[in-house]
């Protein structure tokens, strides 16, 4: 055992590095972020470069992912769309994290009527099917990138509220929290310094898993025409556009679909691995494995 201070996070990273699935997921995520940041620069062709001479061409060296019905390069569009997916994922999960954790923290810490009101509201949100709720919110706010972010953020808020509250309920009963109350620290200080750091692990896991679902939701909204307006590329939208050509041009739907699949899979792999290494009971298992290996 290392005597280092932040040994928990260090051990978690080491354990992650020994999990081949987590490494695979991590590599995909890194590639994805690179695509998101430098997509338009990496793209071999302009995303809206229409060319009727080369429409619906199958994958080739010139166009590895083929071209669509108006001759646009599918690879370029898939690359550039990564940015939108990541942006929507990050912002919406950011909203859900901020709002959900705040609500869950207050509900779990103060309990009583505040807890009842907040969590029953969360239950109501939770009771709706995810997509239906998102569609309803977009219908009210009007379609567009920003509303898609807000809608997905609202949809995933209850999950964070619940995870946070559950964690707070157990940490709150710990003696060190009572001790902090006894020393006269304010409630906000106790929540920030004593409660929140102790529930960071489940929140990190939940964030990673939610990113996958948020990206999936964005794809679904775009598929329904409620996300990013054309001609901006978005994976869900491209899937929708390729739907009419499934038999004659499979690549139109295949590559955006594969991008969605790989992204969601990568976030899930990393999320699952994080759960394994951050759970203290699992930590001993991975440690045992490490010592055995």
């Amino acid at each position: 055992m290392s005597g280092n201070g932040d040994s928990t996070s260090r051990r978690a990273l080491v354990a992650l590095g020994r999990d081949p699935l987590a490494v695979t997921g991590g590599v995909v995520l890194v590639l994805l972020v690179v695509a998101g940041l430098a997509g338009s620069w990496l793209a071999p062709a302009g995303i809206n470069e229409v060319n009727v001479d080369r429409m619906l061409q199958p994958p080739s060296w010139a166009h590895p992912f083929g071209t669509d019905e108006i001759g646009r390069d599918v690879l370029s569009r898939v690359l550039v769309a990564a940015r939108v997916s990541l942006e929507v994922g990050a912002v919406s999960v950011g909203i859900a994290l901020l709002v959900g954790v705040t609500l869950g923290l207050f509900a779990g810490y103060y309990q009583g009527w505040l807890d009842n009101i907040l969590m029953r509201c969360m239950d109501v949100l939770f009771a709706f099917p995810v997509l239906l709720l998102a569609v309803a919110i977009v219908a009210v706010l009007g379609p567009g990138l920003r509303t898609a972010m807000v809608a997905i953020g609202v949809v995933y808020t209850p999950i964070f509220a619940r995870v946070t509250r559950a964690g707070v309920l157990s940490v709150r009963e710990q003696v060190f929290v009572r001790a902090a109350v006894a020393t006269g620290a304010s409630d906000l200080r106790i929540m920030r310094r004593h409660v929140l750091p102790n529930i960071a692990a489940p929140l990190i896991v939940q964030t990673s898993l939610s990113l996958a679902f948020a990206i999936l939701s964005e794809a679904a909204l775009s598929f329904l025409g409620l996300g990013v307006p054309p001609p901006e590329p978005a994976w869900g939208r491209m899937l929708y556009d390729g739907r009419g050509f499934v038999t004659e041009a499979w690549w139109l739907g295949f590559f955006p679909g594969a991008a969605i699949f790989l992204t969601v899979l990568a976030f899930n792999l990393v999320g699952d691995a994080l759960r394994d290494v951050l759970d203290p009971r699992q930590l001993t298992v991975s440690e045992a494995r490490r010592h055995a290996g």
Partner: peptide, 21 residues
């Protein structure tokens, strides 16, 4: 007033310290 003038020591030193600080 309590925080300033009263100090507490609880039973179990394993749980009365915050593990992440």
């Amino acid at each position: 007033m309590r925080g300033r003038h009263v100090g507490f020591v609880f039973q179990d030193p394993m749980t009365s310290l915050n593990p992440v600080l």
